[in-house]
Design a protein around this nucleic acid. Structure first.
Lengths: 409, 409
DNA sequence: CTTTCTTTGTTTAGTAACTGAAGAATCCTC
DNA sequence: GAGGATTCTTCAGTTACTAAACAAAGAAAG
């Protein structure tokens, strides 16, 4: 029963494919070393992947004294995935290849209509347009990932979209998607523990622990927007006091800015006066612009927000022993340069595990479209890595069991 | 390649054994339902466990219309484990059976000597005394678990103890151990997501996600003592401001109490005047005693602390989507009745996922010895559940790979 | 009491996914 | 071009499962 070590990954094929993706280029021997499997196994698995067209032999390494290693690479254009990010303000679409690289991207203003059928039709139409724009055959598209702040509310939407597009649809949280996107596109290591701090209109965090995304029992993981930073602070809609979101979220920053006459005029804030669909996002962008142009009041406002975000980030890092923290999402895409140094300073000076390992804080290179890219990455994962079917939850085993019993004679 | 669903647990044998333990009593059919394995597999696995003496048939269930189910139970007294908790103030020893139930327990004042060899000899002697007190055969003891606040510092100590006792020794963090102890002794479900909030002299948290303990890349998980609750608060030794520990930890409570003349006299605080080995623990106990006896100043002090702890607990619960929060450790053993209602109120009113699932907050029934019990539970786990050997970390695969290559012709 | 049905548990043959070891292919060095 | 080094493939054997037939034990109906 104690046979040789088995790979505990979902499946060997998926593990190998994932290693090829993560490494960029690797030989069979490299895979043997990385997986602990034998050469024979790698040989057959790789042949299967090559037969499917997912992997290709792309060259030779230099000899290390014997036969040269044949290098393998992901066949990036063998499959594609669509990622859609439904935000209050915007709908972002990306088409990525197997490697998670963006092949096409469009972004449209958020849905004005509340009519779900109309929105489904629109999203399906725009996704089709995206696919057609690069002329990819339909059967090479693995599916469509749809992410939003509250994915649970979009279950029916997803089903309708599945029918409308003919593609399998997977739903997820936007912050989680952003984290997966960062993970997939290779900025962080394959087995690393990190969080993607996501700032859109609200603040959330996607969490990846040891290479595995953690979603929690009800998918409500990473609600860092409701981390407490002042037990006597202002009340939040969640019922508590002093939540990060209320103290320092984009909405709070915009509110504070609007209270400042001079800043309102200088930055040209629109909210409150016009009836724009998303005053907060627009005004936050305006404040960031003003800050970049040297408006000291705007800078002070953002730096105050950054101090709170940094404190919450430190709390998160200390709780989860993080190795990497990536700032991503629309608001960091705009104002990340203000936030980044403040967070770095906080974590460099006060991360509890800093003697054991450093924590790297960085800005996502594609913060604005990270959730959409992540949505596509989730499709790649869910289609290529067969979902791991663990033990069924024994919820209440006692209930399944007849309770009366007698002792055996 | 896409064969039927495999159990992703470390091993099937361990999964089945764990289910038998968690369920208390279960039939083979119950195991089939819980694991998703077929009857045939369960049949052979269970036979193996019975042959090893780990599991026994203990009776029959009532018929559900056919043959009655034969009920299985863990053979609790087949194996034992020793758990040792090294605290600043005390050393606690427990001997538990397979089910994690405490068979014997002793507690001694903390080590006065700094001479490591002497402490090793003493711990080995006291552990031996514990084992002898119940007359368990040596070969039925799986090992010794040693837990402390900073386990990394005890590596050599552990090795020496291994030689001195002849038992395999495993080291771990005390808060993590407390969480595993709660998990193993069955208070929380087998696949639940929970944290054990541990308060000794400091404050920490052990984290179990979906039934798996999470330790983090460097074992520094759950440092909730350094959660920020006031960005302009007092400075902490960790480099930050407004850490929970500084604002509301036992040391902070004691310090505040000592500043209060009346309370110092009423509670009979010893610290500062005598040269007791652990003034904080003793004085915290004295304050708790005063609070129980109705001293309003003591109550106010503890309730103020509880408000901070509650805010940090809410942050933790929101970040990890917790289902259960257990209060444990020496300080909660003494003052848990003051803290519990405050934490309950906070999480009932302001836990973000409360509409999706409730969060249960409770006091550990054995808060004082929870770390030691957990230490023993870690031994049970590590010996019975073969450590899962996952993919080797590809650290830097590129380094293993010769970098030069040519495109295949 | 006998027959029939239901449910539980065991046995057996077959299969997927590995390992280990032998062998083939390729490259370097002398 | 012989010999060693290294990479990759092939193949028989092992393990941990499944599926399906079977056996055993009780319930319900006559």
């Amino acid at each position: 029963m104690s046979g040789p070590a088995r790979v505990t990954h979902a499946s060997t094929r998926a593990a190998v494919l994932d290693l090829v993706r993560a490494a960029g280029m690797i030989s069979r021997v490299g895979l043997v070393n990385a997986t602990g499997l034998t050469g024979g196994t790698i040989s057959t698995v790789v042949r299967g992947l090559i037969d499917e067209g997912l992997v290709a032999e792309t060259g030779h390494a230099e000899s290390t004294g014997g036969k040269r290693r044949v290098m393998l690479q992901l066949n990036h254009f063998a499959r594609y995935a669509v990622g859609v990010h439904l935000d209050d303000a915007r709908i972002t679409y990306v088409l990525t290849n197997l490697g998670g690289a963006v092949v096409a991207r469009i972004s449209r203003a958020g849905a004005g209509t509340d009519d779900q059928a109309a929105v489904v039709a629109r999203v399906a139409r725009e996704a089709d347009a995206l696919i057609d724009s690069v002329g990819v055959e339909r059967d090479r598209i693995l599916g469509l990932g749809l992410v939003a702040a509250r994915p649970a509310e979009h279950h029916e939407f997803g089903r309708a979209l599945e029918r409308a597009t003919g593609l399998p649809v997977v739903l997820d949280h936007d912050a989680t998607a952003a984290a997966i996107g960062e993970h997939w596109s290779g900025g962080v290591g394959a087995t690393s523990t990190f969080a993607a701090l996501f700032m859109g209109t609200g603040i959330g965090a996607g969490v990846v622990l040891g290479g595995t995304t953690y979603r929690g029992p009800s998918g409500h993981t990473g609600e860092i927007g409701h981390a407490c930073l002042d037990i006597d602070g202002p009340r939040c809609w969640c019922g508590a006091r002093g939540c990060l979101e209320v103290l320092a979220g984009p909405a709070a920053v915009v509110e504070q800015a609007r209270a400042d006459r001079a800043l309102t005029r200088a930055a040209g804030l629109v909210g409150g006066r016009t009836r724009a669909a998303t005053p907060v996002a627009a005004d936050f962008a305006a404040i960031s612009r003003a800050a970049r142009q040297g408006n000291t009041r705007a800078v002070a406002l953002l730096e105050r927000s950054a101090r709170y975000v940094a404190a919450a980030a430190r709390t998160l890092a200390n709780l989860l022993d993080l190795e990497v923290l990536v700032l991503t999402g629309p608001s960091f895409a705009i104002a990340g340069s203000v936030y980044l140094p403040v967070l770095r300073a906080e974590l460099d000076s006060a991360f509890i595990a800093r003697d054991a390992h450093p924590i790297s804080v960085r800005l996502s290179p594609s913060a604005a479209s990270a959730p959409a890219i992540g949505a596509a990455a989730i499709v790649l994962q869910s289609e290529l890595v067969p979902r791991r079917q663990g033990l069924r939850l024994p919820e209440d085993l006692a209930a399944e069991e007849p309770p009366v019993f007698q002792v055996l004679r």
